[in-house]
Design a protein around this nucleic acid. Structure first.
Lengths: 180, 180
DNA sequence: GACGTGTGTGAGTGCACACTCACAAACAAA
DNA sequence: TTTGTTTGTGAGTGTGCACTCACACACGTC
C-alpha cells in the first residue's frame, strides 16, 4: 500500500483547489486534477463521487483553509476592539490569498451556484466565516458587511487584473486594498 | 429578407446575456442561445466569430446596458453632492439588476477571465463605468471604491441566495442593500 | 503458499458539443 | 426572367471528456 485513501483524498483536494481555480468547474477536466496530483483519472473517480463530488469537497477544503487563517489571524490582533480584530483578520486573509488560488476558487464556485450542491457548499463556507468574524470580533452588522464587501472587491481586482492597470479609475478601486 | 443581420445580432446578444448568465460560458452550448433566440445554431456561428466572439460581444452589450442605466440614474439625482449622485446611481443599478441576468452575467464573465479576450472585455466594461461614476459624481477615490465594493457584495448575495436565509449572519451581510 | 483487502490503472464507451458546408429561399437590380 | 446578394438551415464531422470495468500490484494474516 503506497498510501491510505484518506491521505490521498487530502492531497487530491488541495491540488483540486489550485487546478479548478484557473479555469473553473466546467472547463477543467478531471484528467487535469489527476495529472496534477500524480494519480490516474480512474482513481480520482474512485476517491470521490463524480466530478461534482470532487468540486464540492474542494470547496469545503478551500473554506477550511480560509477559516483557519482568519481564526489564526484574530489571535494576533493588536488589541481587543472590533476594528483592531477585523484589521488583523483582514491582514491574515490578504496574506493567505497572495497565491490567488483560494480567491480564484471562490470566484469559480460562485459562478456555478446554479448547481444546488455547490450553492449549499458556498453558503456553508460563508456561514462559517461570517459567524466567526461576527462572534470573535464582536463587530456590528455594518462592520461585518463592510469586511465582506471589500473582500468581494478583491475578487474583481484580481480577476480583472486591476492592480496591473496604471489608469486613475483602476487606482481608485485598488488603493488601500492589502496587497493581492 | 426576414431581417437584417445587424438587427439579428442585437436580439441574439440580448438573449445571449440571459442564457449565459444562468450556467456560464463553458456550460452553455451555442445551441441554447440559438434556440432561445429562435434561430439555428449555424446562423449564430455566421453572425459571430465562434462561441468566444459571441460571449465577448454579449459582455459588451451587458456593460452597455449597465452604463446606460447608471447614466440615466445620475440625471435623476436629488442634489449635486457626490453622495447624492452616487445614491441615485446605486438605486438605478439596483433596479436594473432586479431581473438578475446582468448581475449573473458579470459573475460568469469574471469567472472566465483566464481567457484574455474576456478579461479585456471585463476591464473595458469596468473602465467605462468607473470613469463615468468618478467624473459624473465628482466622488473621491474612497467613495468610488466603496460604491464598487458594495456592488460586488451584491454578486455574493445573489449567487449564494443570502437574501433567502433568515440566519443572523446572512442578515448582517444583506441589510441595507437595495433590493436584489 | 494461499487468500482476503485495499490501492491503483489502461483501455475502453458513449455522448455532448463546437464548428463546417452544401444548399435553399427571399429579395433587389437589370 | 435572369443574375447576384443576403438571410437562413439540416445534416453532418471530429474531438474532448465524464464515467466504467476488468484487471494488476502491494500488503497483511493464517
Amino acid at each position: 500500500m503506497r498510501s491510505t485513501a484518506e491521505a490521498r483524498r487530502v492531497t487530491v483536494l488541495n491540488t483540486a483547489v489550485s487546478v479548478f481555480a484557473r479555469a473553473g468547474f466546467h472547463a477543467t477536466p478531471v484528467t487535469a486534477v489527476a495529472a496534477s496530483a500524480g494519480i490516474s483519472e480512474a482513481y480520482v473517480f474512485r476517491l470521490f463521487s463524480g466530478k461534482l463530488g470532487l468540486f464540492v469537497a474542494a470547496a469545503g477544503a478551500c473554506f477550511d483553509r480560509i477559516a483557519a487563517a482568519i481564526e489564526a489571524g484574530a489571535e494576533r490582533a493588536g488589541g481587543d476592539s472590533p476594528a483592531e480584530i477585523l484589521e488583523a483578520m483582514g491582514d491574515a486573509y490578504a496574506k493567505l490569498i497572495a497565491d490567488r488560488d483560494l480567491l480564484l476558487f471562490q470566484v469559480q464556485a460562485q459562478a456555478v451556484t446554479d448547481i444546488p450542491e455547490v450553492a449549499e457548499a458556498v453558503r456553508a463556507g460563508y456561514r462559517r466565516i461570517a459567524t466567526f468574524v461576527q462572534d470573535r470580533a464582536g463587530a456590528s452588522d455594518a462592520q461585518v458587511q463592510q469586511f465582506f464587501a471589500y473582500g468581494q472587491l478583491c475578487h474583481l481586482i484580481v480577476t480583472a487584473g486591476l492592480d496591473q492597470i496604471p489608469e486613475p479609475w483602476a487606482r481608485a478601486l485598488t488603493t488601500g486594498i492589502r496587497h493581492p
